[in-house]
Design a binder for these strands. Sequence first.
DNA 1: ATACAAATGAAACAATGTTGCAAATATAAA
DNA 2: TTTATATTTGCAACATTGTTTCATTTGTAT
Lengths: 136, 136
Amino acid sequence: MNATEILKLHEIKKTPGRIAIINALVNYNQPLSENEIKAEMQEMYDRITFYRNVQALTQAGIIHKIVIDNTTVKYGINHCDHGHQHQNEHAHFFCEQCHSVVCLEEVKIPEYNLPSGYKCTESDIIIKGKCKKCNQ
Amino acid sequence: MNATEILKLHEIKKTPGRIAIINALVNYNQPLSENEIKAEMQEMYDRITFYRNVQALTQAGIIHKIVIDNTTVKYGINHCDHGHQHQNEHAHFFCEQCHSVVCLEEVKIPEYNLPSGYKCTESDIIIKGKCKKCNQ
DNA sequence: ATACAAATGAAACAATGTTGCAAATATAAA
DNA sequence: TTTATATTTGCAACATTGTTTCATTTGTAT
């Protein structure tokens, strides 16, 4: 499924900026940072538009934001893309050497045993270490 | 154990700024943001010094940084404070209503089953929802 | 082709965090 | 208690990340 089809499926407007973001994520096949996406977009990149498109794509359920720490954010494409908001909840891996991020689809977010009175609506797992490539 | 004793135990210099940060965290008995600590420190607060003291206290193993998302950071005091770097690994809870953070000492960080080739050095769990007080 | 809502891009702002450097201070030793 | 020295402080300046307002442009359904 290409960018145009993804945008149509999720009923948001097809614009060059959105297509470029989706294409970057699909082509690299892994979550990317703003700067990595910017590099792909070249002169078409505009910071304000980028942030707004990231919001729009996130709301539409096309991408998800991955916060590694307060200064590192990546964006990943959603694979379970039939329908909206279907966050297929998984852990994320961050390589401290090459700074790549991998969606660990097989590492699901568990139900935690919270102290009584606490209600969970969402949870995030960030696993940091050395990725496959960097371990070779 | 008071701030002076904590600083001496961890062998870093006793300064008014460090004492104030430790006292704020101990008195509130929960992780606080920069602004919450700033409010406690009043006119003694200086941004640059604050950031440097946070670094020093973190390195000394006295406090730990809790990144809720890219715009929300809290600092919590370490309870297992005999010795350095003894990060007692636990999950953190963030209340989306009152924005308080709770160290869930009883929710331990598990060993994850990573794909072969991946090595983990550290992992973070942030659980978001509604805390005990806000659920009443 | 056109109408209208939505998206864009510029300027300006806000929050968070860092670095270099001179002055001030904490602490150990005399 | 005084002194010596390494550490810490606070200022100025900067870097990065993200948001808001508003006029202009563009996407898309009719």
